[in-house]
Amino acid sequence: MPRIPNTVGGGSRTNLNGLKFEARADLRDAIIAHPDYVLNNDKVYKDGEVIARYFEKHGLYKKLLEPKGIDYRNRISAKLLPDGALLVGNTIYIIEKKYQAGSGSVAEKLQTCDFKKKQYIKLFDGLDFEVEYYYVLNDWFDQPVFQDVFDYIESVGCKYFIVDLPLSELGL
């Protein structure tokens, strides 16, 4: 069944305190909407100073890794394409959004966070980055049936957020 686009959310409805899950919202939207930050050329400014760098999908490779001489093929077997990545100090926050509206395989994919975080750690080896791996989930996941999965996510050092990811969780 084809996906029906979200026609009622996004833009002005983005929570000023963080990334609010919406079908089209991303971390970039949340930063732009926040009155304390300016996003320009993938650099996040606060009070005129660069405090973070933003990347998504292939931009992580083109703008961060390739200029440092890193070819992902020499480190991991497949290119990982994050929905968003934010480098704050020496911590890179990898953000993956997951949407589901009924039973299906997305819930099972949540259990891959440990593997993906370890792949990112290998990818950034030698850059002295700490890696944080976060899910932002739509409210369909806010059910007791997922508690075991949520416990697992936390037990392997990853985090999940239902609907809203506060920017303070990203070191901003």
Rank of each mutant, 00 (worst) to 15 (best):
V38Y: 11
G69W: 05
Y61K: 07
V106W: 12
A30V: 03
R13A: 08
L27H: 06
D139K: 15
D139F: 10
D36L: 13
V136S: 04
D139T: 11
L123I: 11
H34Q: 04
N40P: 00
L167N: 06
N6P: 07
G157D: 04
L65G: 08
L19F: 10
Y45R: 06
Y152W: 06
D139C: 05
A33Y: 12
K79L: 10
I153M: 04
P35A: 02
V38I: 15
V149G: 01
Q143K: 15
D128V: 03
N90W: 11
G84V: 04
Y61L: 10
M1D: 10
V8D: 08
N41I: 03
G104E: 07
A33T: 09
F55K: 07
V145C: 04
S105W: 14
L81I: 09
L87P: 04
P82K: 06
Y45M: 08
T91M: 04
E130N: 15
Q100R: 12
N74R: 12
I51K: 02
E132G: 01
Y160S: 11
R3Q: 13
A33P: 00
I31N: 02
K57S: 12
F150W: 06
S168C: 06
K109L: 14
V50F: 08
G59F: 08
A101L: 14
N90L: 08
K62N: 15
I162Q: 02
G10M: 05
F129C: 00
K79A: 12
P144D: 15
V8P: 01
G10F: 10
Q111W: 14
D47A: 11
K79V: 05
F129S: 00
G9V: 09
N90I: 09
Y61R: 06
E169I: 09
N17V: 04
E56T: 07
I51H: 05
I32R: 13
P35N: 07
D125N: 13
K118F: 06
V88C: 13
F146P: 05
G11V: 10
E130I: 12
R28L: 13
E154H: 09
L110D: 01
S105K: 13
F129Q: 00
P2N: 14
Y133L: 09
L64A: 07
F161C: 08
L110E: 05
C158G: 02
Y152M: 06
K63Q: 15
K117S: 07
Y134H: 15
I4M: 10
